[in-house]
Write a protein that binds this DNA or RNA. Sequence first.
DNA 1: AACCTATCGATATATTTTTATCGATATAAA
DNA 2: TTTATATCGATAAAAATATATCGATAGGTT
Lengths: 219, 219
Amino acid sequence: MTKIKALPEPTLRRIPKYIHLLMQMKKQGVVHVSSATIADELGLDSIQVRKDLSLAGMVGKPKVGFDMTELVEGLMNILNWGNLKEAFLAGAGNLGEAILGYKKFNDYGLNIVAAFDNDESKIGKKIYGIEILPIEKIANMIKRMHIKIGVITAPPEHAQEVANLMIEGGIWAIWNFAPVHLKIPEDIILENVQLSHSLSALTYKLAEKIKTNDYKIPN
Amino acid sequence: MTKIKALPEPTLRRIPKYIHLLMQMKKQGVVHVSSATIADELGLDSIQVRKDLSLAGMVGKPKVGFDMTELVEGLMNILNWGNLKEAFLAGAGNLGEAILGYKKFNDYGLNIVAAFDNDESKIGKKIYGIEILPIEKIANMIKRMHIKIGVITAPPEHAQEVANLMIEGGIWAIWNFAPVHLKIPEDIILENVQLSHSLSALTYKLAEKIKTNDYKIPN
DNA sequence: AACCTATCGATATATTTTTATCGATATAAA
DNA sequence: TTTATATCGATAAAAATATATCGATAGGTT
């Protein structure tokens, strides 16, 4: 395998889009695909697609495009999908439950094997077959089970605390859904999902749009 | 008010972080804040913070920094928080329910007033006080009620269909949680929340890290 | 009052990311 | 076989974003 240097962040964020599209096309029996087709489908530029794929170490053939199977597998490989990693989730509220229920994450390498909460009434119960344990145990269990990924769906006021416990246990990566800025050591991987941030971008753009269209309010 | 041109996307995505931090500091009684402090707290560069704030039209004073109240209000204003917009949600599954339950979105200008689903058994029920209606009605109701924001939490195989209905009704902005690439007219605002993409970034980085640390697996 | 210093904000530079250009090549058609 | 063309991939240019530099100024200190 050719050595690939770390992918630029924007490229990294486009790769899952490619994979999704390609899996879909593959299911429909397509065996070759050109950068132009991918670009078209995703509303991107074909040059950019080619660049991304090239950065990812994929090679195509002139006049033919890329081999579908090779491409899907190559990209999935890069993202390390298919290499299932066990994870713990902390915070069995609404959002936590939604995530536990979303089995699709298995396809992306995430296998949540236990959930933790501080609410007595929840402990011992099972959600989608996953047992809820007292939060005090999380550090020890991370250590014992060599868990690498922690998912934080706790309320904001407890998120830092939970992160600290995970770090204490020796976690390697945190997928954080709490709307706070976690302070964690540099060498720990942190991915934030801040729904409110995404929503902000939307409301900002909507406000802009309303401003420019305001001379004529559509009725 | 000074005229502000459209903010760069990266700046736009940092503004909510500023707001969160600032609201927290304000609660603790802080009345002035410097770009350096903000940068420190969020792990950013003070120059970048100053640049962002300047783009947002905020002005500070040498030796003092920025007035906390002015700053928070100014930024919130830009994102149009506090100006509540009514929205419809389509897809009352796990994730939809989690979002309906997360009342905090009100703080960010989103007020979900009705949910829609195609599951007979759900229709007529209420989740967190929000009624679930048959999906067939969504286009008409968007039209009648002048709804501007649609939230899609439907399963991927129905997402495009749902988007089409929303567009038919005259929606202005779509907040999409379904893991598909929606094809919509250019003038409609689209914000995607692709949890799997965020997860991909995490697993990629984790794989990188494991690769580099592999010579000595920590035990 | 004169000086010192934290901090801003303007301008300049560097880096990253996107987009453009174009020669090379695999396949199909003439 | 020769020619035509779709498509790649390398290189170059442009645009966007982040970082650095530095003079100006508010407010405290001597």
